[in-house]
Write a protein that binds this DNA or RNA. Structure first.
Length: 423
RNA sequence: GGAGGAGUGGCCGAGUGGUUGAAGGCGCCGGUCUUGAAAACCGUUAGACCCGCAAGGGUCUCGGGGGUUCGAAUCCCCCCUCCUCCGCCA
């Protein structure tokens, strides 16, 4: 969310941004609403000021044993007026709030313009694609043959877009999560294990609500949703707090399951486990001072990259264009890993600086030495999506016989050097 | 799930309808003193919003929401959170 005064004074800039992002925002409605709201507030505050003054006078007269009946009956009328105007002000306030909550973040000056992924810019590449003297198989074939992934039975348990890992497949998933967390904690990120269910206030604070309710699972009869990403939990743990400035930047990481309804994704990536209703992710998160957030974004990306490098997976870093970024992000880098069966790069991590957008919604501040409190900047990045790393390893490390080599860094976690072709 | 208790400013803690945005203490920040520091003393110390070029003025906020009243931290109703005991449970 944006600062109301800033928004009002820079409307042209926001109108331009909305055009660039393809966001439909009714600026005319805002102007009307904003004007009316301020008129009503000004009027009601004048009445309240009058009431407060009269209240003091009534108290004074009563103490002095004088009669205050005339003032009392006069104020009765004023009080009714206030009640009415206050109701109207509350309505307008709520409408304005809803409007402001639906305005996406402004892209940083370094973000390439463009409405969609076609305008994204490749920043760098690492490694080379593995060479095969056979046709590489997709992970669902390899997984099924090796007995480490059972999608038909997952469908029996829960339905399409759910997975059931088995044996060394389950172990690989667990090994990856442990490996990621071990690296992050060595790099100074504090490990958290948060709730997987989150409330409406938390989702609103990060920008997931009110606009993206359809992309999540909601519990019946409770104000709880299945978390779509632990970015929600890690942001919200400090909601309504003023952080100790000396502690910034604060670095956190967490392993959680993530749940997405993938509404509107029908027909996309239906084979395999690339796009699931439930997947695991290790998230990296930072709370920083405003002046250091872009520097911290670069190091966040490098922290994510180092995981792929240690795993020996070929990848590229892509900077997202304005129109391809998430609602809350001011600048985003995606890490895309090479998938040999499809012969394409696919997203495995997304690292964003949200600047003060989430901090303002969530009221997360810090106080500079001797100064007024300010909003922190929040950054998040996957480090990494575990399920997608799983399938990247299976595909990139496959051998002709259908067995899968275990990357060296994972062997201590796996206890084996290779996943055999049949189990 | 049942019974009881509690939620006040960065923290502790007063306050049961009328200069209480809130005593007092602690902490923090600034200053005086000091070669420096400590101590002592003085001062400051939340956020949001509205009017205003500004200076400044005003409104709201005592877990959240609603109500009673000219006026509510103080009275009433609903909800939330925490604590204790019971039940249940991994």
């Amino acid at each position: 969310m944006h600062d109301l005064n800033y928004f009002r004074e820079h409307l042209a800039q926001f109108e331009q941004m909305a055009g660039g992002r393809g966001a439909a925002i009714d600026f005319a409605a805002f102007r009307t609403l904003d004007r009316e709201r301020r008129e009503v507030i000004t009027a009601v505050e004048r009445l309240k000021s009058e009431r407060n003054r009269a209240g003091e006078e009534i108290a004074r007269r009563k103490r002095a044993g004088e009669n205050a009946d005339s003032l009392l009956s006069e104020m009765k009328g004023v009080s009714d007026e206030i009640k009415q105007a206050d109701g109207r002000a509350a309505e307008l306030d709520a409408s304005l709030q809803q409007f402001m909550l639906s305005v996406p973040n402004l892209p940083h000056a370094s973000v390439p313009p463009g409405r969609d992924a076609a305008a994204n810019v490749e920043v760098r590449r690492w490694g080379v694609p593995p060479q095969f003297d056979f046709t590489p198989r997709p992970h669902w074939e390899l997984g099924e043959r090796a007995g480490i992934l059972d999608l038909p039975r997952a469908a029996k348990i829960a339905g399409a877009r759910f997975s059931l890992y088995r044996g060394l497949g389950a172990r690989l998933e667990r090994a990856l999560a442990n490996f990621f967390l071990d690296v992050h904690t060595r790099n100074g990120y504090t490990e958290y294990l948060p709730p997987f269910l989150v409330n409406t206030a938390s989702l609103t604070g990060v920008g997931q609500l009110p606009k993206f309710a359809a992309e999540m699972f909601h519990l019946e009869g409770a104000d709880l949703w299945l978390t779509p990403t632990s970015e929600v939990e890690l942001t919200s743990m400090y909601r309504d707090e003023t952080l100790d400035a000396a502690l910034l930047p604060i670095k956190a990481c967490a392993w959680t399951a993530c749940f997405r309804s993938e509404a509107g994704a029908a027909g996309k990536d239906t084979r395999g486990i690339l796009r699931q209703h439930q997947f695991q992710k290790v998230e990296m998160f930072k709370f920083t001072r405003p002046e250091q957030s872009y520097e911290e974004l670069e190091s966040l990306v490098r922290d994510a990259e180092s995981l792929l490098q240690q795993l020996g997976l070929h990848y590229r870093v892509v900077q997202l264009a304005a129109g391809d970024m998430g609602f809350a992000a001011a600048k985003t880098y995606d890490l895309e890993v090479w998938l040999p069966a499809a012969g394409t790069f696919r997203e495995i991590s997304s690292c964003s600086n949200c600047e003060a957008f989430q901090a303002r919604r969530s009221a997360i501040r810090f106080r500079p030495k001797g100064g007024k409190s300010e909003f922190v900047h929040t950054l998040n990045g996957s480090g990494l999506a575990v399920g997608r790393t799983w399938l990247a390893i299976v595909e990139n490390y496959q051998r002709a016989d259908g067995s899968i080599d275990v990357p060296a860094v994972l062997r201590p976690y796996m206890g084996v050097e290779r996943i055999p072709p049949e189990q």
